[in-house]
């Protein structure tokens, strides 16, 4: 009997913490968004309705989605390429190998600072452009950060997430290499064919999962759109924050409704990733 309850006992402290701080937090957020502190005594969805009938919310949603999608796509592709490079350089130049870990250690806002330095109208790239004779004045350089399009935000995410994806894929690539490279070669495959026929199909599930993680993160992240964004359109988390801190109680409930909507979307994404991962694994064969 003791043996049976042992795992539950061991898990109790951690579960308690998560429950109190996370689950209850979500629960309280839900109840507040359903109007538990409002004047009516019944819970209602009015806040959600109000939120999602506002076209402003929808443009924020589109904006956030766009940022997340483009960041994920770019860092996904670049990360894959980078991980192949890592595979080659790991034995040749360990110094480069270690250096490429650096962006992983630093938070996004340092990356934001770099992008600002590089890409603002009087930034480094602009000065290079001047040197090369493309422009003669800072105002001629396109607005790349703090722009309506969100390019600065996307660039920052690319800076940080490309190494992340590369490092997620690297162990898988290494394992594939150690296992099947010889067999592929002795079946007459050159490096290109090996990459296309063996590596890419086998690394795909991990790549997809990593991309979903990046997407979920960039979709729901606050800091970078806050730092590099403009007043319209705002990313959803930023919008939520503005509402939350506006001091208006009604707006606060809207903020919670929005945050929970964000949580709902990422939750669905997470679930979807999990299902997809399982399906791919059973299709392609287990435990390699």
């Amino acid at each position: 009997m003791w043996q049976n309850s042992k795992p539950y006992l061991f898990l109790l402290p951690a579960i308690t913490m998560i429950f109190v701080l996370f689950v209850m937090g979500l629960g309280e957020g839900i109840s507040q968004s359903l109007g538990v502190y409002s004047s009516t005594d019944k819970l209602h969805f009015a806040y959600y309705v109000q939120l999602w009938s506002d076209p402003n919310t929808w443009s924020s949603l589109k904006f956030t989605f766009k940022i997340a999608f483009l960041s994920t796509l770019s860092s996904g592709i670049l990360g894959l390429i980078l991980s192949v490079v890592l595979l080659r350089t790991s034995d040749q130049t360990p110094l480069l190998f270690k250096t490429l870990q650096l962006p992983l250690l630093l938070p996004h806002f340092i990356g934001a600072y770099f992008i600002v330095l590089l890409c603002m109208q009087s930034g480094f790239l602009a000065r290079i452009a001047y040197l090369l004779g493309f422009i003669s004045d800072p105002s001629q350089f396109p607005i790349l950060v703090n722009d309506h399009w969100g390019l600065g935000i996307i660039l920052t995410y690319i800076w940080k997430e490309t190494p992340f994806i590369a490092w997620m894929l690297y162990p898988v690539l290494k394992r594939i290499q150690n296992t099947w490279w010889d067999a592929a070669r002795l079946s007459g495959a050159n490096r290109f064919q090996y990459m296309r026929e063996i590596v890419l199909p086998l690394v795909f599930p991990t790549w997809l999962t990593s991309c979903f993680i990046v997407f979920a993160f960039t979709f729901s992240a606050f800091e970078i759109p806050y730092l590099l964004g403009v007043s319209y359109p705002q990313a959803l988390p930023v919008l939520s924050y503005e509402l939350f801190t506006s001091g208006d109680w009604e707006k606060r409930s809207l903020a919670l409704a929005l945050s929970l909507s964000i949580a709902f979307i990422t939750g669905i994404l997470g679930f979807f990733t999990y299902i997809l991962g399982k399906r791919i694994r059973t299709q392609k064969g287990v435990g390699w």
């Binding site: 010889d182 067999a183 070669r185 002795l186 063996i198 086998l202 064969g285």
Partner: peptide, 20 residues
């Protein structure tokens, strides 16, 4: 000459079949 161009085939200790 690279292995893929040698027209030599090899069976390994582990079957090393491509899992996908």
């Amino acid at each position: 000459i690279k292995p893929e161009k040698r027209d030599i085939a090899m069976a390994f200790q582990q079957p090393l079949l491509f899992p996908h």
